[in-house]
């Protein structure tokens, strides 16, 4: 059974499915997994609710929005919270409560139901000093930007020793000055 993630309570599965396929599916929840049909990846949640994981992915993007970066990098970046939640009930509570609070503040459609980034960010500004927000943001600094596969998107070339450094590979190739 596949449901399309909308983050909105009160809609039947059938209705969700219908809407989702019409919208060209974003994140789908199937059992305990969050699936991305567009990007062809899935993230199995083990401790957190799959809806929570899906919201975390949106939250991660709202904190560090890079439009050229696909969802899977954000999914990898927040995965550690699911793992930690499995070992530490206090962490699980922190995350579940934090997401529930976001949904509450967002009103009827929940956090992901808010269509504009600005609307979501204005809620985040209210909670940016909370331990929940700081745990998510702090984890992302390394969790997101330390993914080697992400670096080429920003042009960063990473390790260079094995290629003999840049002495013959453009350390001084600037031309526009």
């Amino acid at each position: 059974m596949v449901t399309i993630y909308q983050g909105r309570a009160g809609l039947s599965r059938r209705e969700l499915l219908k809407r989702g396929s019409a919208a060209g599916a974003l994140l789908i929840i199937s059992g305990t997994a969050v699936l991305s049909t567009g990007e062809a990846w899935g993230l199995e949640s083990t401790a957190l609710k799959p809806e929570t994981v899906a919201t975390l992915i949106q939250l991660a993007r709202d904190i560090y929005p890079h439009d050229q970066v696909p969802d899977r990098f954000y999914a990898i970046a927040i995965k550690s919270h699911d793992e930690l939640a499995g070992k530490d009930p206090a962490h699980k509570e922190l995350i579940e409560n934090g997401i529930a609070d976001l949904d509450r503040k967002a009103g009827a459609g929940g956090y992901t139901g808010l269509g504009w980034e600005d609307q979501r960010v204005s809620i985040l500004r209210q909670i940016e000093d909370t331990p929940f927000f700081q745990a998510i943001r702090g984890g992302l600094v390394v969790g997101l930007y330390n993914q080697k596969e992400l670096w080429p998107i920003f042009g960063y070339e990473g390790e260079s020793y094995s290629k003999g450094g840049y002495i013959a590979r453009g350390f001084d190739d600037i031309e526009w000055l």
């Binding site: 904190i63 560090y64 600094v141 390394v142 997101l144 930007y145 920003f154 960063y156």
Partner: peptide
Amino acid sequence: GLPFMAAFLDPGGWGRSFT
């Protein structure tokens, strides 16, 4: 490098002004 730039450009910063 990109990882340290993310950590040190504006520690604690987030949102589009940062990204």
